[in-house]
Amino acid sequence: MGRDGIAGLAVLAASLALFVLTLDLKDSPLVPVGPGFYPRIVLALTAVLSLGLAVADVLAHRGRRPAPAADATKLNYPLVAISFGVFALYVVALPWLGFRIATFAYVVASSSLLAPPRGAKGWSAPLILALATTVVTWLVFERWLSVLLPRGSWTDF
């Protein structure tokens, strides 16, 4: 079984699990069909489709050697994982540190991660970028457009 088959089975399992959860939903007195009516249709349909995907994958793989992964270019997955990690930290820190501090830290971290600075001088680029991003977005959004940005509950800044 290939990648598609596994994905298909995962979706199948998820839709069946959610389908079971819909069975507990109580009908509403004001609507002829309850809140579970439409979800059950969607989940049943998705379950059938994902089963079909898994079956098609098994059939396609039978009698055929699984092709070896022939990616000529090596993809930099660790960088992707770290980038996601840094972004996740940023999101988690936002309500605590506030927009300005968290954004500054995030842009420094993320930019220097994507293009590692060389030597002490190399750090000036990400630092300037981070400062500019933070100050400009803050001024434009909060001061000019009155779009509120998160405030830190630890820092009140």
Binding site: L148, R151, W154, T155, F157
Partner: peptide, 18 residues
């Protein structure tokens, strides 16, 4: 320092932000 900042925020006259 943080605590001071926080209390300073609390004592500022309402409203000090949008």
């Amino acid at each position: 320092g943080f605590a001071l900042l926080a209390t300073a925020g609390a004592f500022a006259a309402y409203p000090d932000r949008p």
